[in-house]
């Protein structure tokens, strides 16, 4: 393609992302440094470009770290971050343990079944996230199906509170993010040459040892991708803890939501977002690198 054609093709998505993805972050950072007191736009300070150097100086001197000071001083925020990281870590581990056998089973199923099975795993992912979380409320609520079944089986005597607990959050997370774990795992497992396992067996490995010595190490890229695809969004998850979790300890996504919608404290909400991004920037960059590497392998 000619240069101008290439440039035209690149220009639109590039400009779009600069405007709607990158620029907003700059604004978030700026708002997070604004005065907490003023809850309505325009925010102080305003960068007055017409005032030249003086305007710039005035702008920077008026920036405030108040919002960040609040984040550090009030333990609610710290606890919220910790809870998010814990939930994300535990959920990701459960997802890996649950998802690996499924991905493995699909990858080792007869070839002509595989597209169907993969589609079966993907299909729930195409239905609404909200619906999937909501489906669990039907099951987990006090007069829901789970209590009903357990009581009929005489496992429990009285209805238990399943909703509004960490258990419910974990169930919701595992349920909602399972396809994100299974698909990248499947993609790497499916590519593993079966003769490698024959070779391992030929060289004296039992099937189990062959799995640990050959299949598992070769599936590490899939594990990394799956873990990142689940861990990063779960840290900032809002819907699942909001609908299934308790209101006692909030995950950071909920805290941000509350600060913004209930307290209307935009600078603090922005500061939470900036800090969250700071925590996640390393895994996000790792994920981006992984994707880019994969792409460059084909060039």
């Amino acid at each position: 393609m000619r240069l101008w054609q290439r440039r035209a093709i690149l220009l639109f998505p590039y400009a779009w992302l600069l405007l709607f993805f990158l620029a907003p972050f700059v604004i978030v950072v700026k708002i997070s440094l604004s005065q907490t007191a003023i809850a309505q736009p325009p925010y102080v300070p305003v960068l007055d470009v017409s005032a030249g150097w003086a305007g710039l100086e005035g702008f920077f001197s008026a920036l405030s770290l108040d919002a960040y000071r609040l984040l550090v001083s009030d333990p609610i925020y710290l606890l919220s971050y910790l809870k998010s990281l814990t939930v994300a870590a535990v959920s990701t581990v459960i997802l890996l343990v649950v998802g690996y056998p499924i991905a493995y089973g699909v990858a080792r199923s007869p070839r002509h079944w595989q597209p169907l099975l993969v589609m079966a795993v993907v299909l729930p992912f195409w239905t609404s996230f909200l619906i999937r979380v909501y489906a669990w409320i039907n099951i987990l609520q006090r007069d829901g199906l789970l209590n009903d079944i357990l009581m009929r089986l005489h496992i429990i005597a009285a209805p238990q509170a399943w909703l509004a607990s960490d258990t419910a959050i974990y169930i919701g997370m595992v349920y909602s993010y399972l396809p994100f774990m299974v698909l990248p795992l499947y993609a790497t497992l499916e590519k593993i040459d079966m003769t490698l396992l024959e070779a391992a067996s030929d060289l004296g490995c039992t099937p189990l040892r062959a799995f640990w010595r050959v299949t598992f190490p070769l599936s590490v890229p899939g594990i990394t991708a799956g873990v990142l695809l689940c861990f990063i969004p779960i840290v900032g998850e809002f819907v699942i803890p909001d609908l299934l979790g308790s209101s006692e300890s909030l995950m950071i996504g909920q805290t941000l939501w509350t600060e913004f919608f209930a307290n209307r404290d935009w600078p603090v909400a922005s500061a939470i977002a900036v800090t969250l991004l700071g925590i996640l920037v390393a895994p996000i960059m790792l994920y981006e690198r992984l994707q880019r590497r994969q792409l460059e392998m084909f060039e």
Binding site: V28, L228, I232, P233, G236, A273
Partner: peptide, 9 residues
């Protein structure tokens, strides 16, 4: 992978 709350805000 970006948490939606960040993108939304």
């Amino acid at each position: 992978v970006m948490p939606e709350v960040i993108t939304g805000l």
